[in-house]
Amino acid sequence: MASQPKLLKMNKQEKVDFGFCMSILIPIMLLFAFIRFIPIIQTFVISFFKKSMIRPGQSFIGLENYIYVLTDTEFIRSLKNTFLITVFSMSLSVLGGLFLASVVNSGRKLMKLWQALLFLPVIVSLVPSTLMWKMLFDYNIGVINQIFNVFGIQSINWINNESLVTVPIIVVSVWKEMGYNMMIFYVGLKAISRELYESAALDGVNHWQRLRYITIPQLKPITLFVCVMAMIKFVKVFTQAITMTSGSQSSGNTFKTLVYYIYQQGFSLHSMGRASAAAMVLLLIILLLTALQMRLSKED
């Protein structure tokens, strides 16, 4: 309504431009409505209904789905698993990425080549990555158990045990994320002015002091940012978990994560209401992390 007078005041060129913009934006916004806005709102609404994926009909049940989900031991376990993976994968991949970036940034010979090779896992998709590591962690023929055997440690059945399978899942996640974090830190390190280092060199500062008093403080904002980005990614962990525990060896052992729980409630148990309530929990966590990230980037 408010735009009506403005539209009338437009000259001919402005009207043509407006028509052009709308002819592009209206189809795009419609598509967004159907594949983003409406499903997002529906998730919120359905989380208050008892609604089946396969049978028609629905009934309003208030907070019952939330109560069911939040008191479900399976859900609590999936939250715990997700938390474990997020914390370990984030800290290891951020530390590793920071370390690799600082070595790559030293400008030694062949560093460009090593950097490209270190980046490779980022472009490898998750399923092949997980399957590769699954083979390395195999009970019978896996390289990792064989290395353990050399040191006199008995073979460990990594995949078959619900708590042990966390290890290969974290390893895959770190393996895939480290190169990505390396690139972001690398860009950040490049941005630190050379003059800072040069004047420090004149003062006879050693490597450790340089790291402690220049690099780390200068990189603090970007480090916080990378941590939150990694957390947002790992809270959604699913592919690694389902691939690592599917098929042989796992003997029905499933490693539930938050997204796995949503998937199972929705597509195996056909309960749209419970799946939506769990999805709202995921959404809430991600939005909190995003708000944190925005606050951090405003402080810069």
């Binding site: 967004f32 499903p39 997002i40 529906q42 999805a279 995921l282 991600i286």
Partner: peptide, 23 residues
């Protein structure tokens, strides 16, 4: 329009996959 589009970047796909599937 722009911020409506931008806001969807933050919403994880996994959170609305169930209604999207039925659609």
């Amino acid at each position: 329009f722009f911020y409506a589009i931008l806001a969807t970047i933050m919403v994880p796909f996994e959170s609305f996959v169930v209604p999207l599937y039925t659609f």
